[in-house]
Nucleic acid binder design. Structure first.
Ligand SMILES: NC(=O)c1ccc[n+]([C@@H]2O[C@H](COP(=O)([O-])OP(=O)(O)OC[C@H]3O[C@@H](n4cnc5c(N)ncnc54)[C@H](O)[C@@H]3O)[C@@H](O)[C@H]2O)c1
Ligand SMILES: NC(=O)c1ccc[n+]([C@@H]2O[C@H](COP(=O)([O-])OP(=O)(O)OC[C@H]3O[C@@H](n4cnc5c(N)ncnc54)[C@H](O)[C@@H]3O)[C@@H](O)[C@H]2O)c1
Lengths: 219, 219
DNA sequence: CTAACGCTGTGACCTGTTTCACGACCACCG
DNA sequence: CGGTGGTCGTGAAACAGGTCACAGCGTTAG
């Protein structure tokens, strides 16, 4: 059973969809749905049935052609595939407008992937508890991160501070960063960075909205 | 000159990068840089020089092999390519934790793509000015949106309200939506939706961080 | 009991994106 | 004044991701 499969290469896109499927399945389970077909999941996720089946190949649980996928079993398989075994603590650095919103949102939501500690350089925020999360000074970053086994972090500091924060996080043993600062971070190869760039997303919306408007008016 | 090129088909990915290039160029211009080569831009954007050149083919401004691209000219070309001619107003619906953070961030930032109006169903928020933006009641959505020529919107309401809000926005003439609610919105074909799903992004980070950690420890 | 159905898993194919490679160009240097 | 070096634009190759189609199989209707 320890025969871990030989590092199945899964695309980044697929992982995103698997996470999405899991959330949809959790909702379904709450509604008492026991079984589901790939085409139903596809309709909810906004992709094709073939894609759902292809993605699910990776998680190692096969559905039945007659009843589709058992919702609880599939959720469990996704959990095994996606989640770290013992849960994983997350640090949030930069308790400003965005950081506070994120804290409020993630507090007490997913059982694993909890935000375990917040950090800020502003002395007015240090040592306060914000949305149920203790805010530490930046000096204690390494200490707290190591003490709590934190390997993931969210960066919500101003752009000009982001690289320095990232360096400190990497130094403290962080392996994955969700970065909201509009800056391309330089990190070692073994650290994974995911950027969320709202400005770029908004400009994309603006561009394609204009595009489809023009197209729609002259088809 | 009105010979608009025949609707060059540009991939979504490319538009995102073009937006990124523009932001990088604006920074460079602030630093007094006059010219730049594709490989320099590539290093900053985190992609290859070939990709930069390929992306820039779409905007219709050619660099010089000897001096690269003129920063001000390139910015201007990107502006012409990406931006709506007279600027574009954006509505924000849902002035909660996240909505307020976004308001504070976008206020007075980009000259075009201003958040022109906010909306909320909470009577305590209606008619107040939050981060310099007037908050209207949902009943006035169509009226205000049409009055201000708003075609874009940001949705930051709870998941269960998102579809209804999207419907109202489409009804009010909105063509593009930046959606933060963890729900796949159903909209007509001529409306472009861009999702930002922080939970999925965080789970992706967790997965790939774990992956590279395992890989890194046993290479 | 049999046939027909509908779904899954997966190999083969196809489409869209990225990378490579090369001709053309210009500035600079010897 | 010709060679050299470096860069741009772009056709073509390479790649990745997504779609199609079908064999296999339990279920169920007749
Ligand atoms: N607010 C948004 O909606 C939004 C949208 C898009 C991008 N962003 C990006 O997110 C980041 C934060 O935005 P914000 O609006 O929350 O800003 P903010 O100014 O409200 O918050 C920044 C926080 O980071 C802290 N900080 C500053 N330097 C620090 C350092 N070196 N170490 C630790 N903490 C430090 C500050 O004390 C403050 O609490 C920015 O990079 C911004 O570009 C924000
Ligand atoms: N806060 C975050 O960091 C975060 C992270 C990821 C996703 N999200 C998503 O963003 C959305 C908002 O999150 P939040 O933390 O700001 O929530 P919130 O509860 O703080 O804010 C929601 C706001 O929407 C308003 N609202 C509710 N129903 C409405 C309706 N029908 N019409 C108009 N306004 C309505 C409420 O009055 C409130 O002001 C949610 O869908 C959440 O899932 C938030």
């Amino acid at each position: 059973m320890a025969a871990q499969k030989v590092a199945r290469l899964i695309s980044e896109r697929s992982i995103g969809r698997l996470s999405l499927y899991r959330r949809l399945l959790n909702v379904l389970q709450g509604e008492g749905v026991r079984n589901i077909y790939s085409h139903q999941l596809a309709a909810m996720a906004g992709c094709t049935a073939a894609q759902v089946r292809r993605d699910l190949m990776a998680v190692g649980y096969s559905g039945s052609p007659t009843h589709g996928y058992e919702v609880p079993r599939l959720i469990e398989s996704l959990r095994e595939f996606l989640d770290a075994p013992g849960g994983q603590g997350v640090a949030l650095v930069g308790v400003g407008n965005l950081g506070k919103a994120i804290l409020s949102y993630f507090t007490g939501r997913r059982p694993n992937l909890q935000i375990a500690a917040a950090f800020d350089s502003d002395p007015y925020k240090v040592n306060r508890v914000i949305h149920g999360c203790r805010c530490y000074s930046m000096e204690h970053l390494a200490e707290v991160a190591e003490g709590q086994g934190i390997r993931l972090a969210i960066i919500t500091v101003p752009a000009q501070a982001a690289q320095a924060v990232a360096d400190a996080l990497v130094q403290a043993g962080v392996r994955g960063i969700l970065n909201f600062a509009p800056v391309r971070l330089r990190v070692p190869d073994h650290v994974h960075v995911e950027d969320i760039d709202m400005t770029v997303s908004l400009e994309k919306v603006a561009y394609f909205a204009r595009q489809s408007a023009e197209r729609g008016s002259r088809p």
